[in-house]
C-alpha cells in the first residue's frame, strides 16, 4: 500500500460511493438519541465562543455585560459603527485581496513542488522535505525585524501584494506537505494512460493531474486563507498607510491604550469570522466528502 503522509490514503475503488465507506454508517436521516446528545454537546463546545462573540457584538451594553449568558438587548449599533466610522469595509477588501492572492499563488507554487517531491526520486529529496518542515518552526515573532529589513530591500513595504508574498512564504511549507499526499494518491497508471494517449508531461499535468488534485488544492487553500486573513504583526509593521490595513490590524483600533471597546471589538471580530465561515461552506464539499474521493475519480 502506498502510504503517504497526507489526508489521502490508499486508492479506493472509484465507483464506490464515499458514503458507504465509513464504519457504522447509517443510511438513515434520523439521529439516534446518543447521537443527538453528542451533537448537542459538540455544537455547544464548538460554537460557544462564536455565540459569545456575536451576542456581545449585538449587546447595547457590551462593555458591562459580565457573565450573563444572554445579551441585555439587541442592537446593530456596534456593527454600523465598525463599518461606518471604523472603516471596516475597506479593511475587509484589503484582507480579501491579500488572502485571495496568497491562496491562488500558494496553491499553484505548492502544487508544482508537491508533484516534484511526490512523483520524482532525486538526490536531496528527503532533505528538502525536512527543510520545508523546518521552515514552519521558526517563531514568527522573531522574524519580524529580519523580514521587515528584507521586505524593505525588496521594496515590498507598504504594499498589499508585498504582504501577500510574505504570507505566501508562511503558507507554502504547509501547503506542500499537504498536497504531496494528494498527488501521491493519484494512481501512476492514470498518468501513464495519458502518456499513451500521446500527451507530453505538461499536457498530462494540466489535463489529468490538475483536475484530479483540485479538491486537495481547495482543502489546502483553507489553511493559506486563514493564515493570510488573520495575521496581525506583519500587516501592522509592513503597511504604512492606514487605509491599507487588514482586518486583524483594524480590529486593534478598538483597543485604546487604557480602554477596550468590547461592542465594536466583538462586532469587528464577527465581521472577520464571517468570510472565513463562508469560505469554509463554499469548499466544505471538497473539504470533507470530496477531499479524498475526488483524487481517485476519473
Amino acid at each position: 500500500m502506498s502510504t503517504t503522509p497526507a489526508p489521502v490514503i490508499a486508492p479506493v475503488a472509484p465507483e464506490e460511493s464515499r458514503d458507504g465507506a465509513a464504519p457504522l454508517r447509517a443510511d438513515r436521516t434520523s439521529l439516534r438519541p446518543w447521537q443527538v446528545a453528542t451533537l448537542v454537546a459538540l455544537l455547544g463546545f464548538a460554537l460557544f465562543p462564536a455565540y459569545w462573540m456575536v451576542s456581545t457584538a449585538l449587546d447595547p451594553r457590551a462593555s458591562t455585560r459580565g457573565g450573563s449568558l444572554l445579551p441585555s438587548g439587541l442592537t446593530p449599533r456596534h456593527f454600523s459603527f465598525v463599518l461606518g466610522d471604523g472603516g471596516f469595509g475597506a479593511f475587509l477588501l484589503n484582507s480579501a485581496l491579500v488572502a485571495v492572492v496568497t491562496v491562488l499563488i500558494s496553491s499553484a507554487v505548492a502544487l508544482l513542488a508537491a508533484v516534484a517531491v511526490a512523483r520524482f526520486r532525486f538526490p536531496l529529496r528527503r532533505q528538502i522535505l525536512v527543510m520545508i518542515l523546518v521552515a514552519q518552526m521558526v517563531p514568527l515573532e522573531a522574524l519580524v525585524i529580519p523580514l521587515f529589513l528584507q521586505a524593505r530591500t525588496l521594496h515590498m513595504l507598504n504594499s498589499l501584494l508585498g504582504l501577500a508574498v510574505v504570507y505566501l512564504a508562511f503558507s507554502l511549507p504547509f501547503a506542500v506537505w499537504q498536497l504531496r499526499g494528494f498527488v501521491a494518491a493519484v494512481p501512476v497508471e492514470v498518468e501513464e494512460a495519458a502518456y499513451v494517449d500521446g500527451c507530453g508531461w505538461g499536457q498530462m499535468f494540466l489535463r489529468v493531474l490538475l483536475p484530479l488534485v483540485a479538491p486537495g488544492l481547495v482543502a489546502t487553500s483553507v489553511f493559506s486563507f486563514i493564515t493570510a486573513w488573520n495575521e496581525f504583526i506583519f500587516a501592522l509593521t509592513f503597511l504604512q498607510d492606514d487605509d491599507k490595513y487588514t482586518v486583524a490590524v483594524g480590529l486593534q483600533k478598538f483597543f485604546g491604550e487604557h480602554t477596550a471597546d468590547w461592542g465594536p471589538i466583538m462586532a469587528a471580530s464577527t465581521l472577520i469570522t464571517v468570510p472565513v465561515v463562508v469560505f469554509f461552506l463554499l469548499v466544505q464539499r471538497n473539504l470533507v466528502s470530496g477531499l479524498a474521493a475526488g483524487a481517485v475519480k476519473g
Partner: peptide
C-alpha cells in the same frame, strides 16, 4: 496622517 493602533505600536 496615519493612525497606528496602540497594540503592537512598539513593534511598529
Amino acid at each position: 496622517v496615519q493612525m497606528v493602533p496602540w497594540s503592537g505600536a512598539k513593534d511598529k
